[in-house]
Simulated scan of single mutants.
Amino acid sequence: MSTDERGLSLIELLVFIVVVGIAVTGVLSVFSLNARTSADPVVQKQALAIADSLLEEVLAKPYTYCDTDDANVGTASSTAGCASMAETALAPEAGETRYSNLTPYDNVNDYNGFAMTGIVDPSGNAVPDLNGYRASVQVQPAGAFNGIPAGETLFVTVTVTGPGNHSVTLSGYRTRYAPNL
């Protein structure tokens, strides 16, 4: 036989199989790592959605000098202008809860210190499949902010922790603005 018609020798074939085997092992290990961690983005995105929803709920509440049940809530320019119920504490008033239709949280500062294990909607109903998540809210005075005097702005921080201790923190500012809401 001439050298042009020769095939592969057994040694060349074995070397080829070993090289291809090593390459395939490397590629499969990358795929395996991706498959094991592919659920992480779902947990992260769910935690982000929960944090966004809770932050939006908090920032949508009024930030007033008076409690929303006070007669002067829309006109008071300081806590001294309240008829009876000034909104001074960074905590809910007695009897207020997030889950009550009769006495719900009615001001941004009522959410300070709020925490829940297992996600619950504002009506108090557990959200299916979100019992592995925890959420907490902190509200604190922001001080002077972009030309707005101190005492007129609150800094709200929402932290949500999901399965595997994946944590998401979102923050926002809430200022008082006309007509005092």
Rank of each mutant, 00 (worst) to 15 (best):
G81T: 10
T64S: 14
L48Q: 08
T97W: 06
G7M: 09
N72A: 10
R174V: 13
M1I: 06
N180H: 08
S38D: 14
R98M: 10
A47G: 14
T88F: 00
N146M: 09
I22H: 09
P149V: 08
I17E: 07
A86P: 13
Q140L: 08
G7Q: 10
T157R: 08
I17K: 01
G143I: 08
A135F: 01
T157Y: 06
R174Q: 15
S32W: 04
L181M: 07
F114V: 01
V58R: 11
F155T: 11
I148L: 12
S38K: 09
A23D: 01
L59A: 07
L55V: 10
L8M: 15
N34K: 11
I11R: 13
E93K: 15
V139L: 03
E93T: 15
N72D: 15
A142I: 00
T3Q: 10
V24P: 07
S123V: 02
V18G: 02
L55Y: 10
V18I: 10
P104K: 01
A47M: 10
V18E: 00
V168H: 00
S53M: 10
S9A: 07
N125C: 05
S171Q: 15
A23H: 05
D67P: 05
M116S: 02
L170N: 08
A142H: 00
A115D: 02
V73A: 10
R176A: 02
G143N: 08
Y133L: 06
N180D: 06
I148N: 04
L54H: 06
L54N: 02
P179W: 11
T97R: 04
Y177S: 12
A23L: 14
P62Y: 05
A39Y: 13
L14Q: 09
L28Q: 14
Y173R: 12
N112D: 12
Y133T: 05
L33G: 15
S32C: 04
P141G: 14
T169Y: 15
T75W: 03
L10E: 05
D129R: 11
Q44K: 14
L181F: 11
G124L: 03
A39F: 09
S123N: 12
G81D: 10
T68W: 06
D52H: 15
R176N: 06
V108G: 09
T169F: 13
R174F: 04
